[in-house]
């Protein structure tokens, strides 16, 4: 079985698996990382979004081989309750979810956005999240939370 090496949330990983399998399958199955969620398996909903390098991608249609030697960040690597990412703090402050199944993917899309654009407009946030689906209708709270996190980060 070929092996693929990459960094997962800062830690070196070596995975023995068919390199054509999806990153999501490996993360959830082999590595027990259940933060990224399966939603559609076709890259259409964003529930499984992770950050590869500096871009948010859907892990369900990202083949394992394509992340070789790259940095992969999942929601588990974003922050902890002791040291939350400003986005996590802001989502709590805005109570920006209902069921929360989509939110781990949304946080990753938002984190990637804030990295490349630390002070986005509301319109830019919506554009960045446009490939993430939310069925409960928490969109506006999520946009507010992302803007709030950006402000907090700018204030240092």
């Amino acid at each position: 079985m070929p092996s693929v090496r990459f960094r997962l949330n800062g830690a070196e990983m070596e995975v023995d698996a068919d390199p054509d399998r999806s990153l999501l399958d490996i993360l959830r199955g082999q590595l027990g990382m259940t933060g990224p969620h399966f939603g559609c398996g076709a890259g259409e909903c964003g529930a499984c979004n992770v950050i590869v390098g500096d871009r948010a991608v859907s892990a369900c249609d990202t083949p394992l081989w394509s992340v070789a030697d790259k940095d992969v960040t999942t929601i588990e690597g974003l922050g902890t309750s002791e040291r939350p990412h400003p986005l996590q703090r802001a989502f709590i402050a805005e109570q920006a979810l209902q069921c929360g199944y989509c939110v781990s993917g949304i946080l990753m899309s938002a984190a990637a956005l804030l990295k490349r654009n630390p002070s986005p407009t509301s319109r830019e946030v919506k554009q960045a999240l446009d490939h993430n689906l939310c069925r409960c209708g928490s969109h506006n709270r999520m946009v507010r939370a992302v803007l709030r996190a950006a402000e907090e980060m700018a204030a240092g």
Binding site: T34, H37, T74, I92, L97, G100, S104
Partner: peptide, 21 residues
């Protein structure tokens, strides 16, 4: 008041049935 289920969901802790092993 803040919802008690929200932090788990924001920190990626296995709370959903889908994530329980």
């Amino acid at each position: 008041v803040q919802r008690i289920d929200i932090p788990d969901k924001l920190f990626g802790r296995p709370r959903f049935i889908h994530d329980r092993a």
